[in-house]
């Protein structure tokens, strides 16, 4: 590593982010940060605005306003592919595997040049992290199980050598064993130095991976603090998470 002054500024800063679907106002002004090397859980009920927040950060919403800065750069007006090339990796909730493409080809679509300061990935390294995928390199995305697709989606995004991952509900609809693998994968990625913003409804999953939690409800952040503080705050949990 080249000698660098430690950068204490957060990797991702979102300020007063608003977004609309058509004329429906979904995000009313979201503020959140993700520090370097930090795993932050974005928690909230169905329809609270978790997915919309991720999409808006990624530039995938038609209408949005507010500030998004990534690695010191204002990305709020950039198109998605430019944002991705800066090192923001997006793993969508509905997976969106390219079903007509093989596992190898899916990974190829995600491939971007290595980026200084972020772990760099090859198919070989990813096959070590996700041994299941190694066994089905030639299989089409459409012929994989949900859990396998979820692994592939994550691996595909990692091929872009991101420094921050936006992971949208990675545990949703997966078997407990796969959820376990997913949590391990996230911890492994954190150990590599990756920062992660993970949206979750599952409190125990979030507690297993995240350092900090931001709770969203009706398009606004209602709680922000260490994961431990959320676990201890019954009121917030009951009011916004219904657990």
């Amino acid at each position: 590593m080249s000698p660098q002054t430690p950068n204490t500024e957060p990797l991702l800063t979102v300020q007063n982010l608003q977004a609309w679907y058509g004329r429906a106002h979904i995000l009313m002004g979201v503020d959140l940060t993700v520090g370097r090397g930090e795993v932050v859980a974005l928690m909230g009920r169905n329809g609270a605005g978790k997915t919309t927040t991720m999409k808006a950060v990624m530039g995938l919403m038609d209408t949005r306003s507010g500030g998004v800065s990534f690695d010191g750069r204002d990305v709020s007006a950039l198109p998605p592919h430019r944002i991705a090339r800066l090192g923001l990796g997006y793993v969508p909730e509905d997976r969106r595997v390219f079903t007509e493409l093989t596992v190898e080809e899916n990974l190829e679509v995600g491939r971007q040049p290595p980026r200084p300061g972020a772990p760099s990935w090859t198919p070989q390294r990813l096959y070590t992290l996700f041994p299941n995928l190694a066994e089905m390199r030639g299989r089409r995305g459409g012929r994989m199980s949900g859990g396998e697709q979820q692994m592939l989606t994550l691996a595909r995004t990692l091929m872009g050598n991101p420094s921050l991952l936006l992971l949208d509900e990675p545990s949703e609809g997966l078997a407990p064993r796969i959820v376990q693998q997913m949590a391990e994968a996230i911890r492994a990625l954190k150990a590599e130095g990756l920062s992660v913003l993970v949206s979750e409804q599952n409190l125990s999953f979030a507690a297993a991976v995240a350092d900090r939690a931001s709770v969203i409800e009706k398009g606004r952040i209602r709680f922000d603090g260490p994961m431990q503080a959320l676990l201890e705050d019954d009121t917030v949990r009951r009011q916004y998470l219904a657990v």
Partner: peptide, 17 residues
Amino acid sequence: TLVRAATQDREMAAALG
């Protein structure tokens, strides 16, 4: 490969850079 990916899901391909 990129063209086939974009054929299926233009937005996802863009989100991958």
